[in-house]
Design a protein around this nucleic acid. Structure first.
Length: 813
DNA sequence: GAGTTTGAAACT
DNA sequence: CAGTTTCAAACTC
């Protein structure tokens, strides 16, 4: 497929151009075009104004370092009490959205002061950078981010009143100590300024308020996107990014100094430990990695170091949980993806995070089925905002994605090597364990070891065992109660808990065992051996099972890539159950059906009878498959493009399965799952009945890049391309400009294919996330998104750039 | 909460 | 590999 080098060259080049970009005529031009001045200006200070919306998610490091930092921050962010966060957030939001309470800023500030959060350090940077720390609080905190960042950036450009407004906004929106400090510093220097700003705000029309709200919306959108796209961001990387950003910002110098407290890290870690579960963890690896990190010499490294453990914990914790979520670019980095791609996709990671390594490789143990069992990932994300539920899910997602990234990487590598045989790509949603396995041998002690690190559950169990040597006594304490506690096998934190009575949790009957995790307190199992104390037994049993069936612990949900008979290319197919179901009576409409349970359609591999799987009937699968196969044979070029796109998407963490998982809100239809990347037309028609309005359509359209450049929709979509392109890569932007209207991405030389693919993938992801965000927060996202879309259109028209074929632009509803 | 149903896992 | 048994989750009442 394409050469990563190409993409690398283009995407990475901009990192050093961030400043130059702003000075460039193009930048000025675009900036002037922005119809959304207030917001755009803020962004414009860092890059291309108006193009931020979607790009916010994928903002390139060079263009928007702040946002980059933000991405990085969140995953690592301490998991402070969700309740606390939510409360704070709520309060902040109220204030922010309340134009009638100009004086609240001070109160809010005070509030922030009172917060004893130990993770304020992180928040300091985060807030300044617009980087929400805690997952749970991310949404709300995030809302303040853009404003803050923008405000600081805008200072030079904004009037004094604007500056004060921004400060006020920051104050209201962010209770963080950081903010507080900032305000203290700045406000103290000129208290009159703050006061003036408040007055100004009072006198200001509602437009300002709207602006703030818009910012919040944007932030929210970004938050959502980040959650999905950046959860997997390596913590260390984030830290570094954050620090880097700080270093770049003069305004942050003070914060830097403040952030030198190592105590914060410790406290944060403690906080996070509370979230620990029986899940597999790889702290050791992380820690070692961090310790070895070249960044240790970094001036700000004290903070990083101190926080590292905690943050890592955050990332690791999730492992046990279940979630299928999107893989994101950031994750890819962990697997040593081509530099360019990584950069472009996950700016935050672009850095040099020494941590690229780690976690993925170790992850795993057996988390097979967790993912498929919990289709509510995104829902949970939503919940985070409104209900401030635990961060477990998010973290879990991160973990899962990281894991899956490995798998994808592996698949990718194999593909690059030239392997075009029919093969199975482990779906992102599918169990991580398999992914891990791909990286490491099953039963690898290393994989199991992490489990030991699960302090909480493990410790508890340990003490338990101490009190009762007999395993029969395990869980004796009212299994029933535990069972009651768990109405479902997946608790709120997404962790599994079984109820085994006879198998000692050493057979695949046990969901915990099958998922590669130790049983924990939530489990009501009896005579459980699936505990750290019996690690040897567990390993041995696993080996036995695997000896019988090497794929016993493999993810049940896989994404298949079948070879196209005609051109020998990979024809993407759908996320499906590995072995298929065998339902006889449930018609694949109940959770008895593993396909249904995994939210995937049945395939020809199923032996079900009377299949009525809402995610895709077996019969439909066959039809679609046939159609796709036919198309694949007919269009070799498309295949090439599609293949690239797919691979890029994989790099970008957007495997089809992952996307599918993201779409749990709107179950993916076979068309998407079966995405043929460009042959969607017939497919969509056929399957339209099952489709719900979802981004997948866009994705499909995107996939068609190169197929019909003249498509009526191409013009619409072009803006998206531009948007992405500009925000992610200045070079790309220039290229487009140079090419003028006569050239298209799909007309680029072979060496450009990589770039094109990357851009396509980015567009795809942007569209997808954008729509998804809108689905989640329709109110917050609509206005802003539409505005920016329109703005992009204007820019495109002004520049007379030819639409990017295949990119379908759909304004958010 | 008890009992039933269901289909995967395990076994033969 | 097919048939049967065992098992635990999912489901119903």
């Amino acid at each position: 497929m394409e050469s990563p080098e190409t993409a690398k060259t283009t995407t990475t080049s901009s990192s050093s151009d961030s400043v130059a970009v702003q000075d460039s005529p193009i930048f000025s031009y675009i900036s002037n075009l922005s119809p959304i001045q207030p917001v755009k200006v803020a962004n414009g200070a860092q890059g291309f104004p108006g193009l931020n919306s979607p790009p916010l998610v994928f903002t390139s490091p060079q263009i928007n370092p702040h946002r980059e930092a933000r991405f990085l921050k969140r995953p690592q962010c301490p998991q402070s009490s969700s309740v606390e966060l939510s409360q704070r957030d709520d309060g902040c939001k109220k204030i922010a959205s309340d134009p009638d309470v100009p004086g609240k800023s001070v109160a809010q500030l005070s509030c922030g002061l009172m917060i004893p959060s130990t993770e304020k350090e992180c928040d300091t940077e985060a807030s300044v950078k617009g980087q929400p720390c805690s997952s749970s609080g991310c949404f709300d905190e995030y809302l303040a981010d853009p404003v803050e960042v923008d405000s600081f950036n805008d200072v030079p450009q904004s009037s004094q009143s604007d500056l004060t407004d921004l400060k006020r906004t920051i104050t209201k929106l962010d209770n963080n100590k950081d903010i507080r400090e900032d305000i203290d510093t700045e406000a103290d220097a000129s208290p009159a300024l703050v006061e003036q700003s408040e007055k100004h705000l009072q006198g200001k029309s509602t437009s300002d308020v709207k602006l703030v709200e818009t910012e919040e919306k944007q932030r929210l959108s970004t938050e959502c996107s980040n959650i999905e796209s950046n959860m997997s961001v390596d913590h260390a990387s984030n830290e570094k990014q954050c620090e880097h950003t700080l270093a770049q910002s003069p305004l942050n110098l003070e914060r830097k100094q403040v952030s030198n407290t190592s105590q914060l890290g410790e406290q944060a870690s403690q906080h996070k430990r509370g979230m620990r579960r029986r899940c597999l963890q790889f702290e050791e690896a992380h820690l070692s990695t961090i310790a070895n990190s070249p960044n240790s010499s970094n001036p700000t490294n004290s903070v990083t170091k101190s926080r590292s453990p905690a943050t890592h914990v955050d990332l690791e914790i999730p492992e046990s949980s279940c979630v299928n979520l999107t893989a994101t670019s950031s994750n890819r980095k962990l697997v040593n993806l081509p530099q360019p791609i990584s950069n472009s996709f996950s700016p935050h990671n672009s850095g040099n995070s020494p941590l690229k390594v780690s976690k993925p490789s170790g992850i795993g143990l057996h988390l097979n089925r967790i993912v498929s069992a919990v289709p509510i990932d995104f829902v949970s994300v939503q919940r985070l905002k409104t209900e401030s539920i635990t961060n477990c899910h998010l973290m879990e997602n991160v973990k899962t994605r990281s894991i899956s990234s490995n798998t994808v990487e592996e698949a990718l590598a194999s593909t690059e090597v030239g392997m075009q045989e029919t093969k199975t790509l482990i779906a992102a949603s599918s169990s991580p364990s398999e992914s891990c396995r791909g990286m490491k041998p099953l039963n690898n002690p290393v994989l199991l070891k992490p489990t030991k690190h699960c302090a909480n559950s493990h410790d508890k169990r340990k003490s338990n065992s101490e009190h009762s040597n007999s395993f029969d006594e395990f869980n004796q304490p009212s299994p029933r109660n535990k069972r009651k506690k768990a109405s479902s096998n997946i608790d709120y934190e997404g962790c599994k808990h079984c109820n085994c009575k006879r198998t000692k949790c050493l057979k695949l009957y046990c969901e915990c065992f099958a998922a590669g995790i130790y049983c924990a307190d939530p489990c009501a199992c009896q005579g459980c051996f699936n505990r750290p104390e019996y690690e040897d037994t567990v390993l041995e049993t696993r080996q036995q099972i695997e000896s019988r069936n090497p794929l016993a612990f493999a993810p049940k949900i896989v994404q298949r890539v079948t070879e196209s008979p005609a051109n020998n290319r990979l024809a993407p197919s759908s996320a499906r159950h590995k072995r298929g179901c065998n339902c006889k009576k449930s018609m694949c409409l109940k959770k008895y059906c593993e396909c249904y349970q995994a939210n995937v359609g049945c395939s020809d591999g199923c032996r079900c009878e009377g299949c009525k799987n809402v995610y895709g009937r077996k019969e439909d699968y066959g039809v679609i498959k046939e159609m796709v196969s036919q198309r694949v044979n007919d269009e070799s070029f498309e295949d090439a493009s599609n293949e690239k796109l797919e691979m890029v998407a994989i790099w970008n963490g957007l495997s089809q399965t992952e996307l599918y998982n993201l779409h749990n809100l709107t179950p993916l239809t076979p068309s998407f799952q079966f995405s043929d990347h460009g042959k969607d037309a017939p497919k969509s028609q056929l399957l339209s009945r099952r489709y719900l309005p979802s981004p997948e359509s866009d994705l499909t359209a995107l996939s068609s890049y190169g197929k019909s450049p003249r498509s009526p929709r191409s013009s619409d979509s072009h803006d998206m391309f531009l948007n992405t392109n500009k925000n992610l890569d200045i070079v790309s932007c220039d290229r487009e400009l140079d090419h003028s209207s006569s050239e298209r991405i799909d007309q680029l030389s072979p060496s450009d294919d990589g770039l094109a693919s990357v851009l396509i993938a980015l567009n795809c992801q942007i569209l997808f996330q954008q729509q998804r965000l809108l689905q989640l927060h329709p109110k917050q996202g609509t206005c802003r998104e539409v505005q920016e879309f329109n703005f992009v259109l204007e820019v495109v028209d002004s520049l007379q750039v030819v639409p990017f074929a295949g990119v379908v632009h759909q304004l958010p509803q």
